[in-house]
């Protein structure tokens, strides 16, 4: 080792050179724009596929999409969904969910229910701010879920498209579950979506 390097080393050690080296980096960051932002005054932009609170959807004419098949309940890994189904008193021989609960405190936001739904009645939204003082309000019932679905309909549509649940076209959104047994005439033509 030459004298020069040795001197350099001794000097570096004495002057805490590595600290200055690091301080240089830190000092540079003083001129950066801060990467943090001031929540809740500033909000993060949330991507389309974000798995936030669940909402129930309706068809364009206001009818419930959900037919109460309980598949979301079966698919749920945390058992937070409860569907109570029955025959629709207004439309005989049609099944519907008379009650629908999602215990959002148990929900793990995996999106399996949406994936399972055979009629795309469920979708996740970008809504994530629902903290409350009363834990009981976190048991979302049917009414609340439809409210979420209505208020965040655009998010829901984007979610379904992003996660390959439906095509980004109006035609696929118009898909409607058809009750074969509600046919009244014995020989009725095929419904449009089946042909």
């Amino acid at each position: 080792m030459s004298v020069g390097t040795l001197t350099k080393k001794v000097l570096q050690a004495a002057l805490f050179y590595e600290i200055w080296d690091a301080m240089k980096v830190t000092f540079k960051h003083m001129f950066h724009r801060p990467i943090t932002f001031q929540y809740p005054r500033e909000q993060r932009t949330i991507p389309d596929g974000h798995r936030g609170a669940l909402g129930l959807l309706r068809y364009g004419d206001g009818r419930d999409r959900c037919v109460g098949c309980d598949l979301c309940e079966a698919a749920c890994p945390s058992r937070c969904i409860k569907v109570i189904s029955q025959e629709d008193p207004e439309r005989p021989l049609q099944r519907f969910a008379s009650e629908f609960y999602i215990d959002i405190t148990k929900c793990v936001f995996c999106g399996y229910c949406v994936e399972a739904c055979p009629v795309n009645a469920l979708a996740m939204t970008k809504m994530y701010e629902y903290s409350t003082h009363d834990k009981r309000t976190l048991l979302f019932d049917k009414k609340r879920l439809y409210e979420v679905g209505e208020r965040h309909l655009e998010d829901a549509k984007k979610y379904l498209y992003t996660h390959n649940q439906e095509k980004n076209s109006d035609e696929s959104r118009e898909y409607r579950y058809y009750f074969p047994q509600s046919v009244l005439k014995p020989t009725q033509s095929q419904p449009k979506h089946l042909s």
Partner: peptide, 12 residues
């Protein structure tokens, strides 16, 4: 067979 699984009681 109809597309009945969602509403059929025998499903499963």
């Amino acid at each position: 067979h109809p597309l009945d699984c969602p509403v059929c009681d025998a499903d499963g």
